[in-house]
Design a protein around this nucleic acid. Structure first.
Length: 281
DNA sequence: ATATGCACCTGTGTGC
DNA sequence: TGCACACAGGTGCATA
């Protein structure tokens, strides 16, 4: 397979979107050696540490992987760099580092002259790096929903211990790493569970259904290369196609595809939750 | 432990 | 056309 040339990821930062980006990135930059790192100097979610440039410079990209919503660059000699896209982060890979685009806050240039640019208008993202193999930011993350250890039994046991409602449990990155607002809403619809249900009222059978729904919804989204609402993407970073398959998210006032009643929106901890009042109980 | 509110930011779409 | 407002896929903090 040929290496991708110029491309840009759409901004869309839940797990299936990050997974899509990581797959492209792996093909684009694995094996390349970093020659230089430039930063805008503006703070992201927190200020970008000087270590970011210092650690990357002169090292080789040994691997690119995903953990939760984080993009992890494994470096050789051993080190790591982390990219978190926040709400509006994108990565752009191209042959040349110049000219930097709007809202470019980080640019990693490789010895062949190509460049990985990080753009983030809202600056909710994160760039971090460190020595060695252990990554503090990832230590508190919960289970990977597509991993072996994630299933109905584990979900039911964890939920039984929680006093929260189901939706906010699903969004907690310390419980399940990677679910965000879209796929939490979609999984709850698929499992026919009301988002405001207290976790402890969820039965073992429902938890097992929910676990299957989460995996199903995420797998489908990854197959479709993620959900894209209004974002540009070029060549290999073409936009995702999953928006055609959304059942509730951003469908307030439209008909439920299952029962034909109207989809509703409510606020839960200051974020929109979309659900079907008939199908989900 | 959890719930709530807010803070961090810019861009886009809507209605007047 | 301009303006005000609501809203956006995430996280982290302070307060009760």
């Amino acid at each position: 397979m040929t290496r991708p040339g110029l491309w840009m990821s759409a901004a869309m930062p839940e797990m299936p979107e990050v997974e899509t980006i990581v797959r492209h990135l792996l093909r684009a930059i694995r094996g390349r050696t970093v020659s230089d790192v430039r930063l805008s100097g503006l703070p992201l979610r927190r200020p970008v540490d000087d270590a970011f440039a210092a650690v990357l410079r002169g090292r080789k990209i040994a691997a690119v992987r995903r953990r939760g919503k984080y993009i992890v660059l494994r470096l050789e000699p051993p080190g790591f760099a982390l990219i978190h896209l926040g709400m509006s982060g994108r990565v752009l890979y191209r042959e040349s580092a110049y000219p930097p685009g709007p809202h470019a806050h980080g640019a990693i240039t490789f010895t062949d002259g190509s460049c990985l640019e990080y753009r983030d208008p809202r600056r909710f993202g994160l760039l971090a790096a460190g020595e060695g193999r252990s990554i503090p930011e990832l230590r508190l993350l919960g289970r990977e929903p597509l991993g072996r250890s994630f299933g109905g039994d584990w979900l039911w046991r964890s939920m039984s211990r929680s006093r929260r409602d189901v939706k906010s449990f699903l969004l907690d990155q310390g419980e399940i790493a990677g679910l965000g607002n879209i796929y939490a809403c979609e999984a709850l619809f698929h499992a026919k569970i009301h988002p405001a249900r207290p976790c402890r009222t969820v039965t073992r059978q429902e938890a097992s259904r929910l676990a299957r729904s989460i995996r199903k919804v995420l797998r489908a989204a990854i197959r479709n290369r993620g959900t894209t609402f209004s974002d540009f993407a070029a060549s290999d970073g073409r936009p995702g196609g999953n928006q055609r398959f959304l059942r509730v998210f951003q469908r307030e006032g439209r008909r439920c595809r299952r029962c034909r009643c109207l989809i509703r929106r409510m606020r839960q901890s200051n974020r929109s939750t979309y659900y079907c009042p008939v199908c989900q109980s």
